[in-house]
Design a protein around this nucleic acid. Structure first.
Length: 115
RNA sequence: AAAAGUGGGCGCAUGAUCGCUGGCAUUCUUUGAGAUGUCAGAGGAAAGUCCGAACUCCGUAGGGGACAGUGGUUCAUAACGUGAACAGGGCGUGAGUCCGUGGAAAGUGCCACAGAAAAGAAACCGCCCGUUACUUUAGAGUGAUGGGUAAGGGUGAAAAGGUGGGGUAAAAGCCCACCGCCUUGCUGGUGACAGUAAAGGGCACGGUAAACCCCACUGGGAGCAAGACCAAAUAGGAAGGCGUUUGAGGGCGACCCGUCCAAGGCCUUCGGGUAGGUUGCUUGAGGUGAUACGCAAGUAUCAUCCUAGAGAAAUGAUCAUGGCCUGCAUUGCAGGUACAGGAUUCGGCUUAUAACCCACUUUUAUUG
RNA sequence: GCCCCUAUAGCUCAGUGGAUAGAGCAGUAGGUUCCUAACCUAUGUGCGCAAGUUCGAUUCUUGCUAGGGGCA
């Protein structure tokens, strides 16, 4: 069951997204930003927002890559949080490994900032 | 063989592992946005939203006008601004291809600059005939003025039939021949239209309607975020009940008494309805094949098939094998494999699109 | 998904089918000043793209492209 990704692990409603946007903590990166908010579900939930990408094929491509990353790297992320990927229009990431590297950079930067 | 034209096809394939969505079946200590199994799961343009319809709601006596759209003819179609065939015109040696292709003798407007004149034609130069003044032997010349003239000049995108002959003071369809044009007839065609050594007209009618406009035809409005059903919370509404200084309810107060506020109160029900959920939702003017009719677009009959249904929105990732293309270069290595992703559903149009394949046709060259 | 609007100079905007397309700000060069600003003079730069109608198109028609807005 480790690598499944059911719909309960996705943010589905506008209200859920708005809660994360209002109260979450933002980490700005080069190709995308992370917005993180602790939840009371006991597991992570994922939301994806792609802005400024013209064609539906490229938009869906980003969403699939990010979902694939999220599915394969559960322990890599903080636990028990809602996390939204806000992808910018100049994003060039094309594989879950590239996303993993970028997220790793962001999280270590954030850790240093807190210390 | 080369260069073209037209029409059509294909739009990488197979397997393994992990994962996603839906249908069906089974299952339950957790009845869940559950689990297991099985089947299915993006396009030729799904795109742009440029047209047309289905479907849904709202509106609606009938007629006219306004407004908008369309615009050769005949068919096709549920319908269309789409398609087919044909007609007319432009382009091309050709196969072919392109065309918003009704009306300018209903009216109004516009036609810059140039030019005498740009529209009920017109006299600037020129040509011709008079009158008159001056010069002159005369013929004639110069100036002024009255007329005739559209042959010639030059301008322009465009200047009111063309060529030749006759004719005249000079000219002119003024007259004649041929060509062109218009009207009427005849013939062919369903028709647009075409033909005509038929008759008549001397020729009138510049262009522009993707300027206003006229004519013919078509059009009620909104759109699945349509619409239908269920329905938290909050505010307000309606009805009924309680209560009316015999005090419901609330404040002060630990509580009682007391005191203060008090119909703008409390309770129940109903209706509408937000978040949210369910539905609309995929069997349809459907696909494929055969036969018949039709030049064709297409239509009819029979057989056969069922082929996505999400909702912050599923079809992805990794690996392997093999196609195809390119490069290196020799039988391996490297790189590439387009445009692009359903959102109520259909019919079209338009736009994007790597590489490859097929059929027919044309022109040129060579050979037979 | 549906429905609208816009595109003119580096920026903000004008512009009856007809001239070398205009105004303000900005830019460049020169003048003025001891120097700078202000001021004066001169000067460059454009009609989103492609077809069509017309003698002629920024303007009219069609198709694209880009941007913006509305419908809960």
């Amino acid at each position: 069951m480790r690598y499944t990704l059911p719909k309960t692990a996705l943010l589905r409603k506008s209200a859920q997204y708005n809660a994360v946007y209002r109260q979450g903590k933002r980490i700005r990166g080069r190709h995308f930003s992370l917005i993180i908010l602790a939840n009371d579900q006991g597991f992570n939930r994922l939301g994806i927002s792609v802005h400024g990408v013209k064609t539906a094929v490229r938009r869906n491509r980003f969403k699939r890559v990010v979902r694939e990353f999220f599915r394969l790297n559960r322990e890599f992320l903080p636990q028990g949080v809602d996390i939204v990927f806000a992808i910018r229009k100049d994003c060039i990431l094309d594989s879950s490994q590239a996303v993993r590297d970028a997220v790793s950079v962001l999280l270590t930067q954030q850790g240093k900032g807190e210390k």
